[in-house]
């Protein structure tokens, strides 16, 4: 069955790049432009994994992860946290919020696929 990935990022170009890369690799991709929209989509669609940016209007990545993890639907759904900072404190916060992993921007298309493959198979 095709796996669905939710890509949450306020940057259309990054969303576009993520979506294109994953679609080419055979994944379904749902896009959301901020954490608020991400949360709505994560709860209203079947998603297998989530990629989320941190800095976004309305609801940031950490807030989104925390909110999503309060719902039972979130169980077993891996969330990858995308960040421009490689600072450990942020990674730690992301992990505590309920992210499974992270990726530091910039990343390449192969790196992205490797990470998704890692969490989704």
């Amino acid at each position: 069955m095709t796996k669905t990935v939710l890509a949450v990022d306020d940057s259309p170009s990054i969303r576009c790049m993520v979506a294109m890369t994953l679609r080419e690799a055979g994944y379904e991709v749902i896009e959301a432009a901020d954490g608020k929209e991400g949360l709505e989509k994560a709860l209203s669609h079947h998603v297998d994994a989530i990629l989320t940016d941190q800095n976004m209007p309305n609801l940031d990545g950490l807030g989104f992860i925390r909110a999503f993890r309060q719902h039972p639907e979130s169980k077993g759904k891996p969330i990858i946290f995308l960040s421009t900072d490689s600072a450990d404190t942020l990674k730690q916060q992301a992990r505590e919020a309920g992210a499974m992993g992270w990726m530091v921007k910039p990343f390449t298309q192969p790196q992205l696929l490797a990470v998704i493959k890692k969490v989704l198979g």
Binding site: D34, G35, I65
Partner: peptide, 21 residues
């Protein structure tokens, strides 16, 4: 515990209208 620490999502900002697709 499995449930993540409870934290309220930040309030909807004044720029909510910009968030539309």
């Amino acid at each position: 515990p499995v449930s993540a620490p409870a934290r309220k999502p930040s309030e909807e900002g004044p720029q909510a209208d910009k968030g539309g697709a």
